[in-house]
Structure formats: C-alpha cells, structure tokens
Amino acid sequence: MNKLLEIKDLHVNVGEKEILKGLNLTINKGETHVIMGPNGAGKSTLANVVLNNPEYKKTKGTVEFEGKDISNLATNKIAKKGIFMSFQSPQEIPGISTMNFLKVAKNKVTGKPVRIFEFKKEVQEYMEELNVNSKLIDRNLNVGFSGGEKKKNEILQMLVLNPKLAILDETDSGLDVDAVRTVSKGINLYKSNENSVLIITHNMKILSELKVDYVHVLVDGKIVKKGTAELVKDIEKNGFTKYKQIDK
C-alpha cells in the first residue's frame, strides 16, 4: 500500500465549537477522493486542518502524511512536503504580482532556484490550457480578480507547484458551467498515478468529467458513508437527508 494521507479519530474545534468529531480518512497514492456533505458539516474545516491553519484547534487524533505525523508542522512545512490546498475564497495580496508570487512559491516548495525563462514558459502553457487571461499574471495576487479568475488561479498554482496531494476546497462553487469544465480539465492535467486529489464539494457537476475512486459523505463532523463513484448518483437523487439520519 502507498499510503499518502491518513487521518485518525480527528477532533477539531473552531473557537468553542467542535466541528470535526472523530473523522477518519485514508488516501493512497494515485487515488481521487471526493468528500460531499451538507453545509456546515465540516468539509472546509478538514481542508484547513490538514494544512494546520492556526484558527482550527485539534483536540484529539492524528494527521499523518507519508507515514509521518504532520499535525504540528507549520503550514509552509506541510506545503513543502507536497500538500496543496485550493482555497474556497483565496486571499487578495496587494503589491505582489501573481507571476512573482508563483516564482517565490515554486522556489520555496522545491527548495531549488527557479529558472525564469523556462518557468515562465511553463506557466504560460498552463494558462493557455486553463484559458486564463494572459494579463492576469501581471496583476497583483488575486486583487480585483473575479470569482472565476481566483479559482482558475488556484488551479494554476496547483499545476505549477505540482504537489503529491491536492485538496480542492469547493473550487467549483460559484462558477459557471464553462469554468467548472476548465477546473476539471486542470485536475485531469495534474492527475497521475503518482499523485492524489481530495475534492471537497457539494456539487455534482465537477465530478462528471473526473475519474473518481472513492466518495465519502461527511455529516456533522464524521464520515458516515464511504463508497465508490456510484454513491454520487444516489446523493444526487436523494440528497443528504438519509445520511443525516444514519448519524442520529
């Protein structure tokens, strides 16, 4: 087994409130996982806590990556280990161009100097694939980007940084059909047998063009059901209601 991410009995608080209540999840190399669940189930919390966002406090349980405990690592060290998170609402950082930022991030994640000419070429190729406005790269990071541009920029960063595990936190939310298709295209471009994806969504559209291995239903801080891609169809038809009841 090529175990990449393993989460055991994870409990997480935001402020005083417990959001994750004993979550278990294992992702192996090469797999595509989907987490679905109603609003407020703890989906985004899961993404943030893997990257050790200090706003989220782990009270119990472990997060391992490639067999090593990463639950207390600083976020940048986790990024260096090869985990990427696509943000639900990416931050706007004024005063730094997107291109410069990509360069810095690539350098930090790989620990190697970036060869500018080749790097720019690579970035441009990805931008064409993602149908990203070429001017975007010179604008300040996410500043004044439309919702779609921000999400495409997240996928662009994923492709450029080429992580071992990409966690996509509702990357498809708020996007029109074409943009969702572009995001799927980006994921397919990135995906190989050597890496894995965890897609967090409550939308089925994005999944139609992806090869999904496992689907997990997250309700009230716990995975209540694990299945294959077939599960998506069931949820599409019947919603989360019956899973909510499983929990009770």
Binding site: N76, A79, V104, A105, K108, V109
Partner: peptide, 9 residues
C-alpha cells in the same frame, strides 16, 4: 496562512 500554504515561512 494562504501564503504559508504555498510554502513561504
């Protein structure tokens, strides 16, 4: 947090 998730200390 956003910048750290991209590898910056």
């Amino acid at each position: 947090f956003y910048l750290m998730s991209r590898g910056l200390s």
